[in-house]
């Protein structure tokens, strides 16, 4: 593996037989080699340079994670994190699009509501987490609320921006053809803002994940974020690292899904 690592250093050299490095397989080999090197260095340093108590070790973390998977104790935590994220995301999206369209179609109501919404929008939503715990308890509901409100504002603003971005000349052209306000809304404003809504929905997934985990770290009795917090409270670094590793895997999976979604959306949009 050290020979693979040195061959990476040489990629700056003039074009040579190293072309294989640029193939997908070559890339995967290099990545795995780097990861292996880091893990090996960590394993070697742990207990010698840094105390195992603080740094744990890759082998101990892997063993812990495996035991969680084997005895099934990970699933309730993982599933509650995903449920909070999914339910909060769905609620936030529906409410965000709904309120966004309403305010977009009723400009006067929009003008009245905007300062209130702007104040809440800038507020770091984490500050609301303790409040939700008081109001909704320590179970899933308080986390769902935190996710929902984070998602809601992102979707609300992208919907509003989308409606504002619709070319007024298109609206005017439809009005001249005899379209009623309702028809203008249905045939011009809604289709015109859809792209913005989808963009908002893509961005919001990341925030939903963050909000769910943050909510669990602050106060919970279940969830992967709760695992991180609970093991940290016990100064159990192996447990903390194992729980963080679960989150890393989740976020890798999420970003893979998002990348594909974005690529296919860009393709469908074509030259638009």
């Amino acid at each position: 593996m050290s020979s693979a690592a040195t061959s990476l250093d040489a990629t700056g050299a003039p074009p040579s037989p190293r072309a294989w490095l640029r193939t997908p397989w070559g890339l995967a080999v290099v990545r795995i080699a780097i990861l292996a090197a880091i893990l090996a260095a960590w394993e070697a340093a742990s207990g010698r340079i840094v105390s195992k108590y603080w740094a744990s070790s890759p082998s101990a973390i892997a063993a812990r994670l495996w035991s969680w998977i084997r005895d099934g104790s990970l699933w309730p935590h993982l599933s509650s994190t995903l449920i909070e994220m999914g339910a909060g995301y769905a609620i936030g999206c529906v409410a965000g699009v709904g309120v966004g369209l309403l305010l977009g179609f009723l400009p006067r109501a929009g003008r009245i509501a905007m300062p209130f919404l702007a104040g809440l929008y800038c507020l770091p939503k984490v500050a609301l987490a303790p409040l939700f715990v008081i109001l909704l308890g320590i179970d899933l509901a308080s986390k769902i609320a935190l996710v929902a409100i984070s998602v809601f504002f992102i979707i609300l603003y992208s919907t509003l921006d989308g409606i504002r971005d619709v070319d007024r000349d298109l609206v005017q052209a439809m009005r001249l053809m005899g379209a009623t306000r309702r028809e203008v809304s249905l045939r011009v404003l809604i289709p015109g803002c859809l792209r913005w809504v989808f963009t908002g929905m893509r961005i919001a997934i990341r925030y939903a994940f963050t909000a769910a985990v943050l909510g669990e770290v602050i106060a919970a009795n279940r969830g992967v974020g709760y695992l991180v917090e609970a093991y940290a409270g016990q100064y159990n670094s192996t447990g903390v690292f194992a729980a963080v590793l679960v989150l890393v895997v989740c976020s890798l999976g999420l970003s893979e899904v998002l990348t594909r979604w974005e690529a296919s959306a860009a393709e469908k949009r074509g030259g638009m």
Binding site: D167, D169, L170, Q172, A173, M174, R175, L176, M177, G178, A179, T180, E183, R187, V188, P191, G192, L194, M272
Partner: peptide, 30 residues
């Protein structure tokens, strides 16, 4: 509303195909 106005600027709906754009005025309730 009794005039048809073909402006210099392009006001086709970008998310509609040629035929759907042409059909747009006929789909209106009026």
């Amino acid at each position: 509303r009794r005039v048809g106005y073909m402006t210099q600027k392009d006001t086709l709906l970008p998310w509609r195909t040629t035929e759907a754009n042409i059909a747009a005025p006929l789909e209106l309730a009026c």
